[in-house]
Amino acid sequence: MAKTLVIAFDPAEVASGAGFATALGQPFDVLLITGNAANNAGAERTFLAGLDSVPPADSLTPSLVALARGYSHIVAVSSMRSKDIMARLAGALDAAMVTDAIAIESPTVYKRPIVAGAAIATVETLTEPVVVTFRPAGFPEPAQQGEATLEPITLELSQGSKRISESMHGGGRPDLTQARVVVSGGRPLKDAATFEKVIGGLADQLGGAVGATRAAVDSGIASNELQVGQTGKIVAPDLYIAAGISGSTQHMAGIKDSKTIVAINNDPSAPIFEFADLGLVADLYDAIPAIRAALDRGK
């Protein structure tokens, strides 16, 4: 029964799921919850649930339990959505669970950061099945082999919580967790309009996504889904620009896998300079317009 089920909540998660499943080294199937097309990246079978949206965890999980019974490993990309659903699934299956895996030693041994990244734990799973959420940065996506052959299946939804309303913020910019460039701002960004103009403006010029610290989100300068860090989103872009961010362990826990970290801070002793590849001691309100002008000149 050494077989993996990749749960992809939308088509964009299929490739990274296949990357993790390939690293796990077992044959795998994919279950696509929403959307109606998937690339084949080595899956034996691809099941298509064809739902319009991802239902609340309590109403979706029982149908996943039935399907998951045939697998030793059930895995999904880390996100707030997958943490909500996969941990409930693990509870229902009485499974072992590994949250935020960053490396695989074997199908029973994983590495994951704990204590806001202060340590990397080597975790052994003692029982089967095993539920894993993983950070995609460590697992290269396998080559696409054309369109997958989709096998429709029906997920019977159970009675559970009722979704009364939903609001999506932002939009238009690349997804924070996938973006090649992320520009983030912290507490000194005054208000939402300033944040959008200064941080959003530079992000747009670089074709990047926007992130924020908890301090910026809590004070209403940025919206909640932009929070990067231990308890927010984990990012791993080629370029991370942190403007007006002190460099708390909680924030740094979310950006450690970035290739190049740039810090702009007017306090030369700000902790973020210990982590930044390139540090600029400057007022961000002077530095960011100057960077934008220099980028324009370079074209």
Binding site: A95, M97, A119, I261
Partner: peptide
């Protein structure tokens, strides 16, 4: 259902400037 085998410090980043 899981056991922590060991803890290691996170990999150090190359010093910046």
């Amino acid at each position: 259902r899981t056991r922590v085998r060991r803890l290691d410090p996170p990999p150090a980043r190359a010093p910046g400037r």
